[in-house]
């Protein structure tokens, strides 16, 4: 589904992503872990078209997307949930959800999808006409995920969905991702600080350190190097 080949990304003279090649197959949940500043967010943003790559290519269903504007990449079905509560804070909960359906034109079904999301997330239903900025951090994260799902992505990229959330909320967010995987077979590329839970959930994983992929494959949670560096055992 997604194929990244020999991708290089730089911020001025700093090379943030070096020669990265990764792949995500249909129906898979792939975790991308690594320390702060390893280039995880940069990699995701480049795939999403928000940042431009220096060289290399990105293919979505065999179509090159590395020169496309971010809005066009989203329209191809590759939807990114940005790090850190990326709700539209001046707009209401329901308006945020409506904009989730901005790329679709089947209005009756969009309305149904929005209703379904409100049933699935009662906290959002109770606050549907409130400004998104007045919601708690966890509620905002739920809103952002619900909004992304309404766009019916073929591939969903989540950047640190549990960052800064209380443990209970983190568990809730992981429960949602697990539900997406088992019930809806959504294809997901997940960047997480919380390596233990991410690797438990994912089919496969990649470890990114200083811009390079240093480890990859299934069962990373059992790899001694990963256990020592990221799982603290």
């Amino acid at each position: 589904m997604l194929r990244v080949e020999n991708l290089h990304v730089s911020y001025g003279k700093i090379r943030a992503v070096r020669d990265v090649s990764i792949e995500v197959n249909r129906g898979e949940v792939v975790a991308l872990i690594g320390p702060n500043g390893a280039g995880k967010s940069t990699l995701l943003k480049t795939i999403a078209g928000i940042l431009k790559c220096e060289s290399g290519s990105v293919f979505l269903q065999d179509e090159p997307i590395h020169n496309m504007a971010a809005a066009e990449v989203a329209r191809k079905g590759l939807v990114m949930v940005l790090e850190g509560r990326s709700t539209l804070k001046n707009m209401t909960v329901i308006e945020n959800l409506i904009l989730g359906g901005y790329m679709r034109s089947d209005h009756a079904e969009i309305a149904q999808d929005i209703q379904r999301m409100l049933e699935r997330f009662p906290a959002l239903k109770a606050r549907q006409s409130q400004r998104a900025g007045t919601l708690s951090g966890g509620e905002q994260q739920m809103l952002v995920i619900a909004r992304a799902l309404i766009s019916r992505p073929s591939l969903l990229m989540l950047d640190e969905p549990s960052l800064g959330l209380a443990p209970l909320m983190t568990a809730e967010i992981f429960a949602i991702i697990r539900e997406l995987k088992t019930k809806h077979e959504t294809t997901i590329l997940l960047v997480e600080q919380n390596a233990r839970q991410a690797l438990q959930l994912a089919d496969r994983g990649y470890v990114l350190e200083t811009g390079r992929i240093v480890l990859e494959g299934a069962g990373l949670a059992d790899n001694p190097a990963v256990r020592e560096a990221y799982l603290g055992v």
Binding site: A48, A71, G101, Y102
Partner: peptide, 24 residues
């Protein structure tokens, strides 16, 4: 209208708007 909401979204954050497929 969705177009009007997209206008407010673009005013609030162009990056978030792009992830929603809004051609700012």
């Amino acid at each position: 209208s969705r177009m009007g909401m997209a206008m407010r979204a673009a005013a609030e954050s162009s990056v978030i708007s792009h992830t929603l497929g809004i051609r700012t």
